[in-house]
Simulated assay, not measured.
Amino acid sequence: MKQSFKRLLVIGLLSLTLSFPLQAQAIMMNNSVRITVVEQDTVYEWEYDNPNKYEYEEGETVIRGEKAKEEVEKILSALKLKEDSERDELLSRLKQHGFSKVTRMDIRLMNEKGELFTWIWEQNEEGT
Rank of each mutant, 00 (worst) to 15 (best):
V38M: 14
E39S: 09
E39P: 02
E39Q: 13
E39F: 06
D41R: 13
D41N: 14
T42K: 11
V43C: 10
V43A: 14
V43L: 11
V43S: 11
Y44P: 03
Y44T: 05
E45N: 04
W46P: 07
E47G: 08
Y48H: 03
D49E: 11
N52H: 08
K53R: 12
Y54K: 01
E55P: 01
E55K: 12
E57D: 08
E57L: 10
E58H: 09
E58T: 13
E58G: 09
G59I: 05
G59A: 07
E60K: 14
G65F: 01
G65H: 02
K67P: 02
K67C: 01
K67H: 03
A68E: 06
K69F: 08
K69Q: 11
K69T: 04
E70C: 04
E70A: 12
E70N: 12
E71W: 00
E71Q: 14
E71F: 02
V72P: 03
V72F: 01
V72H: 04
K74S: 10
I75V: 14
I75F: 05
I75A: 02
L76K: 03
L76V: 06
L76Y: 03
S77H: 11
S77M: 12
A78Q: 11
L79N: 03
K80V: 01
L81H: 10
L81Q: 02
L81W: 00
L81P: 04
K82I: 03
K82P: 07
E83H: 10
E83S: 06
D84E: 12
S85L: 08
S85W: 08
S85E: 05
E86Q: 15
E86N: 13
D88T: 11
L90Y: 08
L91E: 06
L94M: 13
L94H: 06
K95A: 07
K95E: 07
K95Q: 14
Q96Y: 04
H97D: 11
G98I: 07
F99D: 08
F99I: 07
S100G: 14
S100P: 04
S100Q: 15
K101M: 09
T103V: 08
T103Q: 14
M105V: 15
M105C: 09
M105P: 02
D106T: 10
D106R: 13
D106P: 06
R108K: 14
R108S: 12
R108V: 13
L109D: 02
L109C: 02
E112R: 10
E112P: 01
E112Y: 07
G114D: 01
L116P: 00
L116M: 08
T118A: 07
I120F: 01
I120M: 04
I120R: 06
I120W: 03
W121I: 14
W121D: 03
Q123Y: 10
Q123V: 14
Q123F: 12
N124I: 05
N124R: 12
N124E: 15
